[in-house]
Design a protein around this nucleic acid. Structure first.
Lengths: 258, 258
DNA sequence: TGCCTAGAAATGTACGCACATTCAAGCTAT
DNA sequence: ATAGCTTGAATGTGCGTACATTTCTAGGCA
């Protein structure tokens, strides 16, 4: 198809219109296999290569696409490398950095309904949810209690997964194609209940992080998560600068056993 | 002066050489009063406007300069607004957002020596340090216990400041010209001691955030800070996305009194 | 002296061309 | 069949032009 309409007298510059249209088509899944080259876009939109390049340069600056010499631009496989992010990613990567082995005990993996959680995922109260509860270990000691709810319509395929050694995000991407692209989390400092203390083998006076999190993928809320992390074994570590903003770093000292 | 030498057969693109040379001249203070316009640079470096614009667009993307239509590019004024950053900034801005008034009780403001802290600031063990200890209130209830050490050689002017209503960073910038440009912090979940609980009016079962932080300014470590924040009145809140990374948000629910 | 307007000047947008450099596919020869 | 080369195609770099839009300034007018 040629002659895609761009408002030539519109209020916005051509390259910006082109940029937005490309993002729109990208989200619609049009470029799943290959991103069109510059000359194709020139022909398609009937604009100069200069304009196309200006639009693409913006997309590249935003990390949406990756381009190299002599090679067609490709859609950036961003979420694979820069990852799920957030405090939880920091937690698990810091465990890995410390050399301790990670594994989980699956305490529950089933489908259930929960009106409160469902509403937090913008679902009807009776909507079925995949529920996964794990006790995560670093070395031989428990580190965190992790509970996740996902819409069953999206995540039903997870029921057959073995979560004792793989991560939720890996299975989610593998089995449903969903990758979290953004989210929001609240981190609180709490005192664990006696039951939680027993489960996590906490010392009596230990505090804990309580992390609530909503994860989005492709415009939908796909997970509501609550994680309780032993405060005596984990610290959030971050660097901040005017240039690079706030970045969690995995250099956290996960005490090698207590 | 015209004909500034750019290696035309050099390994690097012209625009990149130009970009780096402009940064170099900028740091040398050449553009203190005004940044040269595009046409001036074209004449100066004997390159096309396209090349100049490509270099400037990079500088703009890096936030070094600001350009507008019809107006000469200007050197970007130091990011005065997005300044302090980090969890502490998130703390105080969220209190403000909640509508509660903030004030502090200065428990100590003097000069003392501390070998451990001094070494953390890359100083000799006997180096004098300005020590500031405050109890920070949100509304009528205590929120955090804040202790800061700064090198006395840099921060001596702070001794006469009144910290009951102004922020440390404001006074620091005002009296010494220092602005933190980056830093690092560790955030832990801890159980406050009985003394700390009494001071902060904590409930007996409340946990707390313990934040350690090193702040840098102009290549030197200028503050070592320890802050203890009531866990029942504060939560860290963050948004993350592939596009924008990890950002602390001030939307935290500071419980309006307990 | 103060306000307004016209023009100059600067950046933003958009088009065109040419060549360099790199990647990938296809072909040839061993 | 595979290794190596050739060739085409795509992006990167660099130059030129023209016009639009905005800002600043200087001059005129009341």
């Amino acid at each position: 198809m040629s002659g895609r309409g761009l408002e030539r007298a519109g209020g916005q510059p051509l390259w910006k219109q082109l940029q937005h249209d490309l993002v729109r088509r990208l989200r619609a899944g049009e470029f799943a296999d290959a991103f069109p080259g510059e000359l194709v876009l020139v022909e398609d939109y009937q604009v100069s290569r200069h304009t196309v390049r200006q639009a693409l340069s913006q997309l590249r600056a935003d990390g949406v696409i990756v381009a190299e010499r002599g090679r067609q631009p490709r859609v950036a496989t961003a979420p694979e490398i820069r990852q799920p992010m957030g405090a939880l990613y920091s937690l698990f990567s810091s465990v890995e950095a410390s050399g301790l082995t990670q594994h989980s005990t699956v305490r529950a993996l089933d489908i259930r309904a929960d009106g409160v959680i469902a509403s937090r995922l913008d679902l009807e109260g009776s909507s079925p949810l995949v529920y996964l509860e794990r006790l995560r270990f670093a070395g031989d000691e428990p580190l965190a209690l992790d509970r996740v709810w996902l819409p069953a319509t999206l995540a039903e395929g997870l029921l057959e997964a073995d979560f004792s050694h793989t991560s939720l995000y890996h299975e989610l991407a593998e089995r449903t194609g969903l990758r979290l692209d953004h989210g929001r989390e609240d981190i609180r400092a709490v005192t664990p209940t006696a039951a939680e203390r027993a489960l996590l083998h906490c010392p009596a006076d230990a505090a804990a992080f309580s992390i609530n999190r909503v994860g989005h993928a492709q415009g939908r809320k796909v997970e509501w998560r609550h994680t309780l992390v032993r405060g005596d074994r984990f610290a959030l570590s971050a660097e901040f600068s005017a240039h690079q903003g706030y970045r969690l770093t995995p250099a956290t000292t996960t005490n090698p056993l207590g």
